[in-house]
Design a protein around this nucleic acid. Structure first.
Length: 484
RNA sequence: GGUGCCUUGGCCGAGCGGUCAGGCAGAGGUCUGCAAAACCUCGUAGGUUGGUUCGACUCCGACAGGCACCUCCA
């Protein structure tokens, strides 16, 4: 089916067509691995995951998905420094080699990142590669050297900068983000005195080493520039090395449009002569309880925090998919509860269609699938796709459906779950929970009291069971016990 | 200051120029000794203000409020 995607370059929804006829090459801006990933990060990665799944399932394309791991930047350097209090014993022991410390530190958080995305249903095997920035230093130096030779980069105090004004004479700078150069406000969050740029709009390609920091030797036409790469250069290099240029889709959070992606376009076009990608796709942010997530507001949650609170990871995934990726998502704990119930309703329907006692009604599973795929293919309208599923469920109770329809629906849900991945496409599992003997006895005693119409005693025992953590649900045959 | 986005019912969250979004919560009902669960049924919308139109939640303008980005935050 034809996929349509919103392209940040053109600011319109466009029909998607891969550069090469049969394969989609997709690059996602990945994490900076200096800490555990938080749920805001996760929205970006879940968006990318849904996109690649929709491309595979609805678009029927093979997908080559690459996500970078930024393991060299100010924060990873700071937090892996010798004797930093951010060091954990699980990372191993520190040495006097800053690169060794950096890698031990960032590998630890890379591993935890992969665990965390896996918790939320993103499968490691769906990635073709997760390249680490430090594995591409040589290629970065190569690109920087090219830019320098073309006169588009200059050295200032051992750091190398991209000359934006000069590039603007050649090509547009501001393809994703309209920039008002007259009113360009120099960055307020960075210690601007640290680096000497000619123009506030110029950006670092390479940064001079500071004492004690990890660095790589770099001789740029006789000028000693020992240091480490800037942030934007890694993506330009790794996507070109792994996927080749141009590739099809580049994803990331809206905050990355400028400067990160804008600079990436400039570097790649200037250095390689080709822009990185045809489609730029950006996800909106996530708020928590209506406010921007921040540590000072106390609403900052990592994936691990949520799991420790006992949240179901599938409910978290479902919540993230229940709103469109381009709208701000309000993450709330009430929302998680609602998501859990909504998700369970579909799950119960799926369980029910596996039951043997089929009815006689038929329903059009094919048109359901078409409608759902239509929504998914239309710029990933997951909320509408879900609405279709619910409408179907409401109009077609499982017990009324005949076996042919059930078979078709099972196939449909298998396919749908390749995208959503929040359900079990299986018969309801008869889970044998170990019920303590005293609870069994109490329940039997209650049943007896109930049969004797001794309601007072029966209710008393039911309350007692509830207090002990067991819920009694009566039915025609007797009762069932559920652990609360 | 610049750039862009958003404002829908108690909460979350879509599409659409006129006809049911959907979910959660809530109300009523079936079932039950009573519950619970399940199932059935049902409200309550479209920031304010002009305009376009036979008709606007939907298009255009203004205003108000909120959010994001503006050199290393997804």
């Amino acid at each position: 089916m034809q996929i349509k995607l919103y392209n940040s370059l053109t600011k319109t929804i466009e029909p998607f067509q891969p550069v090469e006829t049969n394969t989609v090459k997709m690059y996602s801006c990945g994490p900076t691995v200096y800490n555990y990933a938080h749920i805001g990060n996760m929205r970006a990665f879940l968006f990318a995951d849904i996109l690649q799944r929709v491309l595979r399932v609805v678009g029927e394309y093979p997908v080559r998905w690459v996500m970078n791991i930024t393991n060299i930047d100010d924060k990873t350097i700071r937090d892996s420094a010798l004797n930093a209090n951010t060091w954990k014993s699980e990372m191993g022991s520190q040495s006097d080699d800053p690169i060794d410390n950096l890698l031990k530190f960032t590998d630890f958080y890379t591993k935890s990142f992969i665990e965390d995305i896996n918790t939320l249903g993103i499968k490691a095997e769906d990635f073709e590669a997760m390249p680490r920035a430090t594995d591409y230093i040589e290629q970065m130096k190569g690109l920087i050297t090219d830019l320098f030779h073309k006169g588009l980069a200059y050295v200032s105090e051992g750091s190398v900068y991209f000359n934006v004004n000069k590039w603007r004479q050649v090509d547009t700078y501001g393809k994703l983000f309209k920039i008002d150069f007259e009113n360009f406000k120099p960055g307020t969050r960075v210690d601007t005195d640290q680096y000497e740029r000619e123009q506030a709009s110029d950006f670092a390609l390479w940064k001079l080493k500071k004492p004690g920091e990890p660095f790589w030797s770099f001789d740029l036409d006789g000028q000693n520039c020992d240091g480490r790469p800037g942030w934007h250069i890694e993506c330009s290099v790794m996507e070109k090395e792994i996927l080749g240029l141009p590739f099809d889709i580049h994803t990331g959070g809206v905050d990355l449009k400028f400067p990160h992606h804008e600079d990436e376009i400039a570097q790649s076009k200037a250095g390689y002569g080709i822009e990185p990608t045809l489609f730029w796709c950006h996800n909106e942010f996530l708020e928590v309880e209506g406010e921007k997530m921040s540590k000072s507001l106390g609403n900052f949650f990592t994936v691990r925090d949520l799991m420790n609170k006992g949240l179901n990871s599938l409910d978290v995934r479902y919540l993230m998919l229940s709103s469109h990726y381009q709208s701000v998502l309000n993450f709330t704990f009430d929302g998680i509860t609602a998501s859990g119930k909504a998700r369970q309703r579909v799950q119960d329907f799926i369980y029910d269609i596996f039951d043997n006692n089929a009815g006689s009604e038929s329903a059009d599973a094919v048109s359901l699938k078409n409608r759902v795929y239509e929504h998914l293919g239309n710029d990933l309208h997951t909320p509408q796709a879900l609405a279709e599923v619910f409408s179907f469920i409401n109009n077609n109770p499982a017990k009324t459906l005949n076996s042919t329809t059930r078979t078709e629906l099972i196939e449909f849900f298998k396919d749908l779950n390749r995208v959503f991945s929040v359900w079990e496409i299986n018969p309801r599992a008869e889970v044998e929970i170990l019920i303590p003997q005293n609870i069994k006895d109490m329940a039997e005693e209650r049943l007896k009291a109930k049969q004797e119409k001794n309601w007072a005693k029966s209710d008393e025992l039911r309350d007692k069971l509830k207090a002990d953590g067991w819920l009694v649900k009566d039915n025609k045959e007797g009762y069932t016990l559920e652990k609360i």
